[in-house]
């Protein structure tokens, strides 16, 4: 197995999911000091967007902007300086459903806004419009492996280009009938600011490598259900180790037979 190790510092975290509202409130839950309660994800309105865009923004835009901004603010960085890796296992599910329904009807006229919101990089585009960041954004999808793919892409940018990078992973739900084919239970987003150098605010250093070892599972049944049910929540073992300020090695899910080992050292 590949023995290459990539190193970065985690300088900021954004988190929004069912019963997990922001990193500060989620930390004691993931550390096991507070019971986890699965409650529907609450999505804030994206204040940074102009009113027209704000009104039309779907769940994936709200989720992406909220987690991205939380991570960048926590890292005390200017978002216009950060290249971004955006990964999502699907686009805007509601929007996709509406388009397919219209195209299957007698009147195939779809609205221009629906169409431009259908691109997989819509939320990434809104991120750059909202923050004014003209930095590059890598926009990725790897189905259930989407978080792992985003983490690898972000880590290679940190190491090869020697710059801090913002990683955002967002997954939202589909309405029926697509929900039956892709039963993502709720909206879940995570963002990490990853930096090549340690700073005063660094939370931990991570060393990642590819491995054949099995992915870690979570002891809490409800959190484990979340991890299995939503691709972006495959990040939970990493977040749990960070919440517990634990020194150690965890394994994150990626593909069958290929996973990502993360050695974590709190700063």
């Amino acid at each position: 197995m590949n023995t290459i190790t990539l190193t970065a510092y985690i300088d900021g975290i954004g988190l929004l999911g069912p019963g997990l509202t922001g990193w500060p409130d989620s930390r004691p839950i993931l550390a096991g000091q507070q019971a986890y309660q699965n409650q529907t994800t609450v999505l804030p309105s994206p204040a940074l967007l102009p009113a027209a865009e704000r009104r039309r923004s779907g769940a994936i835009v709200k989720l992406t902007l909220a987690t991205g901004l939380e991570a960048v603010t926590a890292a005390n960085l200017d978002p216009t300086t950060l290249p971004c890796v955006y990964t999502a296992s699907g686009g805007d599910g509601q929007n996709c459903h509406e388009i397919c329904e219209t195209l299957a009807s007698d009147d195939r006229h779809i609205s221009p806004t629906r169409f431009h919101n259908s691109v997989h990089n819509a939320a990434a585009g809104y991120w750059s419009i909202a923050t004014g960041a003209m930095t590059p954004i890598s926009v990725l999808c790897a189905y259930d492996a989407s978080f792992g793919a985003g983490l690898l892409e972000a880590m290679t940018q940190v190491v090869v280009d020697n710059v801090p990078v913002l990683l955002i992973a967002s997954d939202t739900t589909y309405p029926e009938p697509l929900h039956h084919a892709r039963p993502i239970p709720d909206n879940f987003g995570i963002a990490l600011v990853l930096s090549p150098r340690q700073s005063a605010g660094s939370l931990a250093s991570i060393n990642i490598s590819l491995t054949g070892d099995a992915a870690d599972t979570l002891d809490d049944a409800a959190l484990e259900q979340l991890r299995r049910g939503i691709p972006a929540a495959r990040s939970l073992p990493l977040l749990q180790a960070l919440a517990q300020e634990r020194n150690g090695r965890i394994v994150l899910d990626y593909f069958e037979h290929l996973r990502i080992a993360v050695a974590i050292t709190p700063c």
Partner: peptide
């Protein structure tokens, strides 16, 4: 490693960038 890059009409130019870094 495998990934789809989906940034609309720049998608398959940007694959070169992701591959280069990896």
């Amino acid at each position: 490693p495998a990934v789809a890059v989906s940034s609309a009409c720049s998608s398959s130019a940007k694959v070169f960038s992701s591959a280069r870094r990896m």
